[in-house]
Amino acid sequence: MNELFKHYKNYILLLVIPYLMIMFILVYPIDFNLQSPGGLTEVENLIEVDYNNDKSIEGTISTTYIISLKRPTYFQFMLGTFTDYSTISVLTGSNLTYTNEEIATISYLDKAISVDASVIVAYQLAADSNSDIVIDYVAKTMVYGKAEYLDHYEDIAFGDQFVKLIGDNDYEVTEIAEIAANTVLEESYDWVFINEDDEQYTVSLSKDEEYGLFGITLKTYYIVDKETTYPSYTESNSNIGGPSGGLLQTLSIYNMLVTDDLTHGLKIAGTGTITYDGTVGYIGGVEQKIITAYLNKVDLFFMPSLDENYYYDNYQEALRVCEEYGIEPDGWLIPVGTFAEALDYLEGLN
C-alpha cells in the first residue's frame, strides 16, 4: 500500500483540494425542494383482494409517483436545472423544520391512510350491489404534526394514536374538538398515546409561552378492521409515499370486487386523493405527474377537477402542462370531482 502512496504522492497532493470540493458539491444539502417525473405503480402489485380470482383484467390501473426531493445536494440542484421536466422551489413551511426522515415518515403515513380510505370507499360502493361484501373500520386519532417547541418531541412519534388527555377538572378528553375547551386552566396536561408497538405511554405536555399551543397536530382517520372485513385483502410493502394515489387505488380495488372489467384493456393512470365520502382531493406536483404519464404512454389520465375552494387549480395547471408539452388533453386528461364520476366515465367507455 505504501508504495502506491509514494508513487502517486504528487498526484494526491495536486488533487486533494479539487477532490474535496467535488465531494462538497455532491454531499452538502441545501434547503430546496426538487420535483422530477417518476413512474407508474400498478395498484394490483400493492393491494390484492382475494375475490373474483378467475376474473381476467385486460388493462391496468396505476398510481403515478414523482420524485420529490427535499434538501437536494448542490449537484442534484444543478441536475434539476438541466431538464425542463424538473421544478425547483425553496423549501417552506413545516418541510423546513422537519428532517428528511420525518418528512418520509409522514409521507408513508399518508400512504397507509390513503390505502385504508380507498378500501373503505371501494368496498362500501361494491357492497351496495353485493351483500357478500362487508367493510368494517374504526376511527383513530393519530399524531400528524409536531412543532419544534413540542415537549417530549422525541418520545412522540408520527402515527402514534392519541387515546386521551386529562383536562381541566380531571375531565378525560378523547375527541380533538374537545381539547381546546378543556385545556384552559393549567399550563401542562397529561396526554396518553399508544405507539406502534401497541404500548400505552403518558407524557406531560406544556403550552408554548409564545404561541399558547401544545405544538401537536392530531387527525382522525378510519382504519379498516381486517378481521371482519370481507373479502380479505393483502397489502405489499411500498417504498412510495403520499396520499395522491387514493383515487386510482379506489378504482383498482373496486375493479377487483365487481364482475365487469372497468379497464376495457386500457392503460389507466391518474392522481388525486380520496376522502371517505368519495370526493377526489387536490394534489401537488401536477406538471411532473402529467409528464410521467405521458412518458409512460398511458391511455387515460384522471385528474382532480376544478374546485372553487382552492386558489390553486390542479386541472388548469394540467391543461397548461399539456399545452406546453404538446399533449392533446381531449379524451386523455379526465377531470373528476368524485370517485363516482371516474366510475361513470369508465363504465361509459365502449
Partner: peptide
Amino acid sequence: FEMIIVYMY
C-alpha cells in the same frame, strides 16, 4: 446515485 434519484424516469 444522485442522477438516478433526479432522473428516475
